[in-house]
Amino acid sequence: MLTKELVAASTVPLVLSVLAGGESYGYALIQQVRELSAGEITWTEGMLYPVLHRMEADDLLESEWKPAPTGHRRKYYRLLKKGRQALQTEQQQWLTVHRTLTKLWPPLPHSI
């Protein structure tokens, strides 16, 4: 499980990365991140929405209400140009941290 601080810091890059693969809605986004992280990254689900709204206000995303197959509506989010640029910056920064840490640490044992 990640610490609260790391969850908060990684939410925006995770959202940007998922949406880079195509439009999605809040619930699906959360499910996808949970599956990809094998349950290590779990959000208090409702907390994602203020983040999405903030990102939309910053012109990183745009949203649209669409009918779902269940008959109800869902708000779908799409990445905007500014969002793609933000994703590139995030990628560089996270990879820099990752590369630096892996150089400092001895190789991880493969068998425990």
Partner: peptide, 16 residues
């Protein structure tokens, strides 16, 4: 609009 969105989330979550 926020409430619509949270309600849609709950419906999806309940279904799953």
């Amino acid at each position: 609009d926020d409430l619509d969105q949270l309600e849609a989330h709950l419906r999806d979550s309940v279904a799953t």
